[in-house]
């Protein structure tokens, strides 16, 4: 990722408190009594077996799912240039196939008072940041999965988010692309210091990005453990023994639940 204009996305002190959040779908308990602090400027990773309610939790954080009980509180002032404090990056990218790359980014700016030139400049800036400049006029269908998710990132950055909410943003990609994008995410998050909630199944991703890793159990989804990693993102290497030990511990925590989830009907 290019370094241009990264400074425009300066660190913001926005945090979230999740207090006693519970949710059920037609009687099926998905989440129960979730209490999590999401500190400003940190990456909070959420891991857990299939169906434990990770996506539900992320939906509640961003106001896309109305929880049954409890509340989510946003702390701090996002600043005047923040157009959408809680901004998602989607697993399936959620790009409009009938808009070009630039058009998809521009979409989220068009409802805001902003003159045409300023909007075009903002679009160009985030496309440069994600290495998409030469694909500005391409249709989404012409892009590889990795490039599509870059558009998703560019679109999220365009609104100057206070919190990035990412639901398995790499899981639709092949392993190599995933590794490349993961490094780019880490660099971007480290440079901008944007508060991030990152849901994943992938434990190497979790230890690569997380300042704290929230492990959810299933039926109903409850917080089983919160693991902190204080090593700066820039210093984390895949072969770091401390990180590998944490990965092992996470796997030990998840193993039984995961096995049980795997035996169940989807």
């Amino acid at each position: 990722m290019s370094d241009v204009a990264l400074d425009a996305l300066e660190r913001r002190g926005i945090g979230l408190s999740v207090c006693a959040v519970s949710h059920a779908y037609r009687g099926l308990k998905a989440l129960e009594g979730i209490d999590i602090e999401i500190p400003p400027g940190e990456v909070t990773v959420v891991v857990g077996p299939s169906g434990c309610g990770k996506s539900t939790l992320l939906g509640i954080l961003g106001g896309l799912v109305a929880q049954e009980a409890g509340e989510v509180v946003l702390h701090g002032d996002p600043g005047a240039d923040c157009l959408n404090p809680l901004t998602y990056v989607f697993q399936d990218f959620a790009l409009l196939p009938w808009r070009s790359v630039a058009g998809n980014v521009s979409l989220v700016l068009e409802d805001h008072a902003m003159d045409k030139a300023a909007r075009a400049a903002r679009v160009a800036e985030v496309l440069a940041l994600t290495g998409l400049t030469e694909f500005a006029d391409a249709w989404p269908r012409q892009l590889s999965g990795g490039m599509r998710q870059r558009v998703g990132i560019a679109r999220a950055l365009a609104v100057r988010p206070a919190v990035l909410l990412m639901d398995e943003p790499l899981s639709a990609l092949d392993a190599q692309t995933r590794d490349l994008l993961l490094d780019e995410f880490a660099a971007l998050i480290a440079r901008t210091g944007v508060t991030t909630v990152y849901v994943t199944h992938n434990l190497p991703e979790a230890v690569r990005l997380g300042h704290s890793i929230v492990v959810l159990g299933r039926r109903p989804g409850r917080v089983r453990e919160i693991i902190r990693i204080d090593m700066p993102l820039a210093e984390r290497r895949p072969d770091d023994t401390a990180l590998m030990a944490i990965e092992q511990r996470l796997w030990a925590l998840l193993r039984d639940d995961a096995a049980e989830a795997a035996r169940e009907l989807a």
Binding site: G63, T87, A94, L96, V108, E110, D111
Partner: peptide
């Protein structure tokens, strides 16, 4: 998912209809 995306970025209802629903139905 596309409509949810529009809502998650705070698009106005008319924008969602004009820019997501209508082109999607075209």
């Amino acid at each position: 998912g596309l409509i949810r995306m529009g809502q998650s970025f705070g698009l106005r209802p008319l924008s969602i209809v004009a820019k997501i629903v209508l082109p999607g139905a075209l």
